[in-house]
Design a protein around this nucleic acid. Structure first.
Length: 269
DNA sequence: AAAGCTTTCAACCGCATGACA
DNA sequence: TTGTCATGCGGTTGAAAGCTT
């Protein structure tokens, strides 16, 4: 082990306990200041300098998921975004980070959370859509909404609570299209016996499902003109140069100077 | 109003990968 | 070549918020 590394281990031992749990605004401020000075890198040094009692990993995660500019906080996934996620998930699998690069202002965590809650919702609907439940509760609102309204638009007028369920069914059964408008398109949609049977999910993943005309299939290189697409938002009034790819170590590689300039401009600091 | 249930989301963990000494 | 470290990713968890009964 090298001298430096031995020192590092020794230093670590003296760094005290690691803080976990929710972040306070003061901690955020420290983290933002760090990024302002050095760019989104050297996360471990935050702790080693005694600025925060957080691990580098924790700092990075906080920055990436919450503090980074242009994130869509508290904004639900739009129909368009939902379609994109569903299409890309079918294409790439659970490559959330990759999928997130196609969505402005969304993190891999956002996409992952969206997908997992959607899966839960689907699973629950499957249970309530079993043949017995359809027969036994023929007149129930739930069955009416969750089973037979696949062609409605999820961008329609305000849904009632149960219609929210319909919305999810619509999404799941029609590749989440909100634009089933022409009769030809509707004809192409397979009938839905599957709903009465176990595999809504496999329906979703079937060739019919994928080939169903929806959003034009995104090309792999689509929207990836930048080094770290996680970090961008084309709606910015200015395009910060910290978005520019720089060859080097890791995915967050940027030049510190340009980053600091653009960060300052962006945050008005 | 309150209890119970569901959904959302922030954060953690373990593992993988690449850079570097 | 190997070990260590920093970083990134995907899975998971649990608290808080929202909703239903």
């Amino acid at each position: 082990m090298s001298e430096t590394k031995r020192k590092m281990v020794h230093y670590r031992d003296e760094m005290g306990e690691i803080k976990k749990g929710p972040w306070k605004s003061e901690e955020d401020e420290v983290l933002i200041n760090h990024v302002r000075k050095y760019g989104p890198r050297d996360w471990s040094s935050i702790r080693s300098k005694g600025l925060l009692q957080r691990t580098g990993k924790s700092c990075r995660l906080r920055w990436v998921n919450k503090l980074r500019p242009n994130l869509k906080h508290g904004v639900k996934f739009s129909a368009e975004e939902e379609r994109t996620v569903i299409d890309l998930q079918a294409q790439f699998g659970n490559k959330w980070a990759k999928i997130a690069t196609y969505l402005q202002g969304r993190t891999d965590n956002d996409v992952k959370n969206f997908w997992s809650s959607r899966q839960k919702r689907l699973a629950r609907i499957l249970l309530t859509s079993s043949p017995s439940s359809i027969i036994s509760s023929k007149n129930s609102k739930e069955v009416q909404t969750s089973t037979f309204h696949h062609v409605s638009s999820m961008e329609g007028p305000n849904f009632s609570q149960s219609a929210a369920e319909e919305e999810s069914i619509t999404k799941s059964c029609s590749s989440s299209s909100s634009h089933i408008e022409d009769s030809e398109t509707i004809k192409k949609e397979p009938l839905m016996p599957e709903l009465a049977y176990p595999s809504l999910l496999s329906y979703e993943q079937s060739p019919n499902y994928l080939s169903f005309p929806q959003v034009p299939l995104l090309q792999p290189d689509f929207a990836l003109p930048l080094g770290d697409p996680n970090f961008f938002d084309v709606q910015l009034p200015i395009m910060p140069s910290f978005l520019a790819p720089v060859k080097g170590k890791g995915h967050d590689s940027v030049t510190p100077d340009s980053f600091i300039d653009d960060f300052s401009t962006y945050w008005n600091v």
